[in-house]
Simulated scan of single mutants.
Amino acid sequence: MKQTDLLNTIEAMVFISEEPLQVDEIIALVEEITEEETSITEEEALDLIKLLQNKYMDDAFAFELVQSGEGYCFMTKQKFSNVVNALLKNRSKKRLSRSALETLSIIAYRQPITKGEIEKIRGVGCDYAMKKLLGKELIKMKGKSDAIGRPMLYGTTDKFLEYFGISNLKDLPSPKEFKEEDLEDSSGTTNEEATSTL
């Protein structure tokens, strides 16, 4: 395999890898995809990686190939950190679905509360909504209930407060305080709808 082909192969490997790719993995993968027709030593692999690192040092690229632990991965260059932060912030504030918002409202007002109690209030299952809320770190497990089977209790997090722009749970309006003109929230679901089951 030509050096250009090897460089492109390693570049593709690192790009698609979910975790930093180690040198021994690169060597093994090169042999695997070429059916052992091509083999490279650790020194040769490191030389190829160095060539790729030099390539991405150019200002034409917004990212670079860096060593992370014992492996290598692509990362955005430091000078673009503000762009990354803005993107992550926007993604973290993606609109919540109606079911997620309703589930979150119940947890916020009734915490600590079990999943079974939430489902009893809503009248439907909430596995998917709970998974999304846990993934967004808007809720967390807060111990176990004393009820039969010791089900897990859930409550809101500091990220929940940040997400809705409040300093503490006391700032939450009571369901009775919601006014018609304030019903529409950022998710397209009304606050009245979200708290109607409380």
Rank of each mutant, 00 (worst) to 15 (best):
I118E: 03
T190Q: 08
Y154I: 01
A129T: 00
G188R: 10
F160T: 01
M130T: 02
R150K: 15
E137S: 14
A129G: 06
D185M: 14
S187I: 01
E184Y: 11
T157E: 03
K140D: 09
K179A: 10
E184N: 12
S145A: 03
G149H: 09
M141E: 15
A194V: 03
K140A: 13
E117G: 00
A147P: 00
A194D: 03
I118K: 05
P175A: 00
E181W: 11
Y163C: 05
E181Q: 10
I121L: 13
C126T: 06
K170C: 02
K179E: 10
K120L: 09
K136T: 08
D171S: 14
E117L: 05
G188I: 08
K131E: 14
E177T: 06
K176Q: 11
D185V: 10
Y154C: 06
E137Q: 14
E177D: 12
A194R: 08
L153E: 01
L153M: 10
F178K: 06
E181K: 14
F164N: 07
Y128L: 11
E192Y: 14
I166R: 03
D182E: 13
E192G: 08
E117H: 10
K159G: 01
Y128I: 11
D171F: 05
T114L: 08
S187M: 06
I121R: 14
D127W: 00
K136W: 05
L138I: 04
E119L: 06
D127N: 13
S145L: 05
I148S: 14
K120Y: 05
G135T: 05
S167A: 12
E184W: 07
N168W: 03
E177I: 00
K159I: 07
E192C: 05
I121S: 02
P173C: 01
L169R: 08
K142I: 01
L183Q: 13
D127S: 15
K179L: 11
E192A: 13
E192D: 09
G149W: 08
L161S: 06
I139S: 13
K140E: 15
E119M: 04
G155P: 01
D127E: 12
S145W: 08
K136C: 11
S186H: 10
S145I: 01
F160V: 03
K120W: 01
E193R: 12
K176G: 00
L169H: 06
L183N: 15
L133A: 07
A194S: 10
T156Y: 00
T114R: 04
L161Y: 14
E119T: 08
L133E: 07
D158G: 06
Y128P: 00
S186Y: 10
S186K: 15
L161D: 09
G123A: 03
Y163I: 00
S186N: 09
K136Q: 14
D146N: 13
R150H: 12
G155N: 07
Y154D: 07
E192H: 11
F164W: 12
I118W: 04
T190N: 08
K176S: 09
S167M: 07
T114K: 09
G188M: 04
K179R: 15
I139F: 05
A194L: 09
E177M: 10
E193P: 00
F178T: 03
P151K: 10
G123R: 03
E181T: 09
Y154R: 06
A194W: 09
I166D: 04
N168S: 14
K115V: 02
L133D: 09
G135L: 05
E117M: 10
L138G: 11
D185F: 13
